[in-house]
């Protein structure tokens, strides 16, 4: 009974290996199964599989990762809330004097999963953070007229690509940038200029261009709309930019809808030393183990993917949280936010149930936004309760054993959830 509702693991297995375990068999199996669709490897930006983190010093501390995560969450909240007050673009045009709120889009720094794609002809490989919480795909571009941050791969130079073209200011795709970035596009020598600001003062500004995108050797797309960044600053951790997978027409998912019919899936690797995948298109053998729930829209944030949480189970206990707590705040699923945020009522119920189940382990000090941390250093194995989410239309999804704890070290292992400030947030 106990085993049924708890995970028992070796404390050592909680700690990420220092070497990259090349794609695990299941991923390989998955990769081959997806012959008909295109599959990219997903790696953790700060792990030993990433070519970006050769400079150990570059890896942020856990406190920094968690702090960046909070900044991202604040910016998502402000995007969702600001949508309530946002005037239509026409209003803004009419009241030219109105200060257009700098769209605090999503914060990239904390997003820590990257994929490698090819751009241009001949194609240049670039590591981009993939982000279901934002729409515009961009990368840094030579000649970096204003500024480029340090990135691992050579910075893309459109002047050496036979297939690069600028988007003109008068084209309809140029005006689409307003909804994708929250900022009205600029114009420079008749070339459309994009401007995307992120919540942590990161930003990318540059030419809006069209280029050949190679997702894999065989999946190549001409005329892919992306941002060629001439002024880029921020916490992008050595990656070359961002792959936007949100719901706006400018998102990669929408631009490649013809081929992939707005269908994509991913698996995020369990440790920073293992490999996952991001695949586009419905694969013929798509595992029928997949259980579905409703994809809903977030009224104030139409770029986000909404899901309806109705309850949470800890061990064999259904938490005493009324479904209205979840429905009044709504929930989005975001590959770029690290720690799940819950309405405070829900978080305090989860925290109480988890602490009750873990009362035989010593609590230790909190780290950043995580307030339920344990010292496992004197244990060889530990047991902790399973956690599952109940979504609408009756789907109950168990989290993986690795999806419950955030491991700073063996003596600081934390419950990987945090509460929002206010249920109505």
């Amino acid at each position: 009974e106990e085993r049924e509702h708890a995970h028992t693991v070796e404390v050592n297995s909680l700690l990420p290996a220092t070497t990259c375990s090349s794609s695990s068999s299941s991923t390989k199996g998955h990769m081959s199964e997806h012959a008909s669709s295109s599959v990219l490897k997903v790696i953790h930006k700060h792990g030993p599989c990433s070519r970006l983190n050769k400079h150990k010093s570059k890896t942020p501390t856990h406190a920094q990762i968690l702090q960046q995560d909070q900044t991202r969450v604040n910016s998502i909240h402000s995007r969702v809330n600001s949508k309530k007050q946002t005037k239509s673009v026409d209003d803004l045009r009419q009241s030219a004097a109105t200060t257009i709120p700098a769209q605090s889009g999503s914060v990239v720094g904390s997003g820590n999963y990257i994929v490698n794609v090819g751009l241009g002809s001949p194609k240049k490989q670039l590591s981009l953070i993939f982000d279901t919480g934002s729409d515009l795909t961009w990368t840094q571009c030579r000649p970096c007229i204003i500024s480029c941050y340090k990135q691992k791969e050579p910075i893309f130079d459109p002047s050496f690509s036979a297939s690069y073209t600028n988007v003109s200011c008068t084209s309809a795709t140029c005006s689409q940038l307003t909804s994708a970035t929250g900022n009205t596009p600029g114009c420079d020598t008749s070339t459309c200029i994009y401007d995307i600001q992120y919540g942590d003062q990161s930003f990318s500004i540059g030419y809006f261009g069209k280029e050949k995108l190679s997702l894999t050797n065989t999946d190549v797309f001409d005329g892919f709309l992306f941002g060629c960044g001439q002024n880029n600053q921020g916490l992008f951790g050595g990656s070359a930019g961002l792959l936007g997978l949100g719901r706006n027409p400018i998102s990669l998912v929408e631009q490649l809808a013809q081929k992939y019919n707005r269908f994509f899936s991913y698996c995020l690797p369990s440790t920073s030393s293992s490999i996952g995948y991001l695949s586009f298109g419905k694969s013929d053998g798509s595992s029928n183990a997949v259980k579905f729930t409703t994809l809903s829209t977030v009224s104030q944030g139409d770029s986000f993917y909404g899901i309806n949480v109705v309850g949470i189970n800890v061990g064999e206990t259904k938490l005493p949280i009324s479904a209205s707590v979840f429905s009044s705040s709504g929930t989005i699923i975001d590959s770029g936010t690290v720690i799940t945020r819950l309405p405070p009522t829900a978080y305090s119920a989860l925290k109480a149930a988890f602490r009750q189940a873990m009362k035989s382990y010593p609590l230790t000090e909190a780290v950043s936004i995580l307030d339920t941390c344990y010292d496992f250093s004197s244990f060889k194995t530990v047991s902790y309760p399973k956690i599952s989410f109940v979504f609408d239309n009756g789907l109950t999804q168990d989290l993986d054993a690795t999806g419950i704890l955030y491991v700073v070290s063996a003596d600081q292992v934390c419950l990987a959830f945090a509460g929002n400030e206010d249920d109505s947030y």
Partner: peptide
Amino acid sequence: IGIFGNVQQKRLQVVYDIAGGQIGFAPAAC
């Protein structure tokens, strides 16, 4: 708003079937 973050998504196959209006999950996919 609540956010289902990437720690909780670990090792799950997360499927976005936008045309079908659904999000899916499958366990132990990588």
